[in-house]
Computed example of a mutant assay.
Amino acid sequence: MSDVLSPYMMLALLAGLGVGGGIALLVAALVGWPRKAGRGGQSTGQQLAAFLRRRGAAAVLVGLVVLVLLKWPVAAIAAGLLVMFWSQLFGGLKGEKAALAKVEALATWTESLRDTVAGSAGLEQAIAVSARNSADVLKPHLNRLDDRVRTRMPLPDALDLLADDINDGGADEVIAALKQSAGLRGAGLKQVLTDLAHKARSDVGMRRRIMTSRSPTRRSVQIVTAVIVAIVTGLRVFNPDYTEPYATVQGQLVLAVVFFFFAGSLAWLRRLAKVPEPARFLVRARAGGAR
């Protein structure tokens, strides 16, 4: 087997690297790079560097093990990419739970604002009270909003900064209602907040039902992938004569095509499973600060 591979090892490695790069770009296009929400945000390069540091070592180690075990460069690259993008292809539960917690926190915050405003409290006072009783996912952002209001920053400007901190389309709807109320100082805020709270609560219920219905499908995809990997590995280790044609350059190219379409189907399935998030509309321009 090594005699068959040795004249074409470099060519097979280059082909495998090309296919691996194509799979990585396909996954990035369909699934997207992981993003971290934080104050000020991170650039795409910083997010990518952090992602590679977390997964790169494990991916290289698994790739080397597969290369030594199977002697297939394309399979080694595919195994490394599978480890690197495992959570993007088969995960998502953690992200769905985080999104659910944020929507539920927004609903609770909106209800707290509505109840405080209904007690004839001013908007600034309602913000301070709701910040103290908010969920952990929103508490740092609301505490900063309260600090800005206490330092005499105009309320619309402070709310603009809050929208940037939370970075969520659903939060933009609540903040837009607060901005309008802060500018007009008119009635009707209670009813608007009630409608937004009801909308957020219905969104929470929908997300819970979706998470429950997806659990069996997510588990089935993981089991099918594990079975395929186990069968291929078993055939290669225990019946090498049967898989000998794949040790050639042509066989490696065939495997590369198979892995490419398999990864593409997984990435497409993961994309279809995403819950569409409401688009943001309170977005400040980078240069002038206008919205």
Results as ranks from 00 to 15, higher is better:
Pro276Tyr: 07
Arg150Ile: 09
Ile231Lys: 03
Gln88Pro: 07
Thr225Leu: 08
Pro140Arg: 03
Ala101Trp: 02
Trp33Leu: 13
Ala50Gln: 15
Tyr8Phe: 10
Gly18Met: 11
Leu184Ala: 14
Leu272Trp: 12
Val31Lys: 10
Ala163Cys: 04
Asp160Tyr: 14
Ala59Asn: 05
Ser220Tyr: 12
Gly18His: 03
Trp268Cys: 01
Ala128Lys: 06
Glu96Gly: 13
Gly56His: 07
Gly91Gln: 06
Ala28Gln: 07
Thr217Gly: 12
Leu11Asp: 06
Leu70Pro: 01
Gln252Val: 05
Ala128Glu: 10
Lys199Gly: 11
Leu272Gln: 12
Lys36Ile: 15
Ala15Asp: 03
Arg148Pro: 01
Ala131Cys: 05
Pro156Ala: 09
Val229Gln: 04
Ala57Leu: 14
Arg284Pro: 03
Lys36Gly: 07
Val254Phe: 13
Val237Arg: 13
Asn167Arg: 06
Leu106Gly: 08
Ser43Val: 14
Leu89Pro: 01
Trp86Gly: 05
Ser202Arg: 15
Leu17Met: 12
Thr151Ser: 15
Val149Lys: 03
Phe90Ser: 01
Ala200Tyr: 15
Val283Lys: 11
Gly122Asn: 13
Ser112Gln: 14
Asp165Pro: 02
Asp168Thr: 00
Leu48Cys: 07
Leu17Asp: 02
Ala78Met: 05
Phe262Val: 11
Leu5Met: 10
Glu124Arg: 15
Arg286Ile: 13
Arg54Met: 06
Leu161Asp: 09
Ala158Arg: 03
Lys139Cys: 04
Lys199Ser: 13
Pro216His: 12
Leu159Gly: 06
Asn133Arg: 13
Val275Arg: 12
Phe85Pro: 01
Phe281Gln: 10
Ala15Cys: 08
Val275Ala: 09
Arg208Pro: 08
Ala126Pro: 03
Arg286Gly: 10
Val117Trp: 03
Gly264Ser: 10
Glu124Thr: 15
Ala76Asp: 06
Leu13Arg: 05
Val258Lys: 04
Leu93Ala: 14
Phe261Tyr: 14
Leu52His: 05
Gly92Phe: 14
Gly91Phe: 08
Ala187Trp: 04
Arg150Val: 13
Gly18Leu: 14
Ala177Pro: 02
Gly41Ser: 07
Gln47Leu: 15
Gly63Pro: 06
Val192Ile: 09
Ala287Pro: 01
Trp72Pro: 00
Leu235Val: 08
